[in-house]
Amino acid sequence: MDNLIIAGKSYTSRLLVGTGKYKNFAETRAAIEASGTQIVTVAIRRTNIGQNAKEPSLLDFIPPSRYTLLPNTAGCYSAEDAVRTLRLARELLDGHSLVKLEVLGDPHTLYPNVVETLSAAEKLVKEGFKVMVYTSDDPIVAKQLEETGCIGIMPLASLIGSGMGILNPYNLQIIIENAKVPVLVDAGVGTASDATVAMELGCDGVLMNTAIAAARDPVLMACAMKKAVEAGREAYLAGRMPKRLYSAVPSSPTKGIIAASGKNQAA
């Protein structure tokens, strides 16, 4: 079975989805369900003090019993903050240690700070976390993160929330070639074809949030993304035909063509 294996668990869906930026919890749930995803990311934030006790929370709609949760370190700009956030996440989720590490370098572009990311990854792996790490598409950094002990490498296609798609497929290919752990594109996916291209390059999965949440019809886009990831994976496994500048071999037979009428005859 062509399943995605992460931290020893097998998943049929290779699409991972974020839970941010939706209109409300109902839309979040509808989109997550339509996407067919089994792994969703969540953020860790201060609770509102003085909030009505009866107000629902995200996990009422996206229960940990049904989905594998991936707490992230969004908003962290230092290794120290990222580690602290994930320790809290582990406590929050009763010892669940599969996490998404992201350490940002700049609030304007949200580009990752790979130096702090490496430092955080080292500390987290030592503390027994199973780290899926968001990083740039630098192949050397990706390899170093893998060597530190991260169980999944997640290079960006383009900037978070930019929807620009895969800007450097060549780097991505190099990362995939060199990696012995799953490689998932995370950030920058904008539409279905971006996800398909990622899978065709050989990615093990795709993580996206804005591409679905900011679509005009998020639930429909989630459906599209589900198919896109499946299509890309099958195309990859099928082994594509080579690209050529031209091919004198058409798809139809060259024998038995009826006699030409006069104009534009072949030589």
Partner: peptide
Amino acid sequence: LEIVIAVGGG
């Protein structure tokens, strides 16, 4: 005291 919960995020 810092009290945190899980919220939506990517």
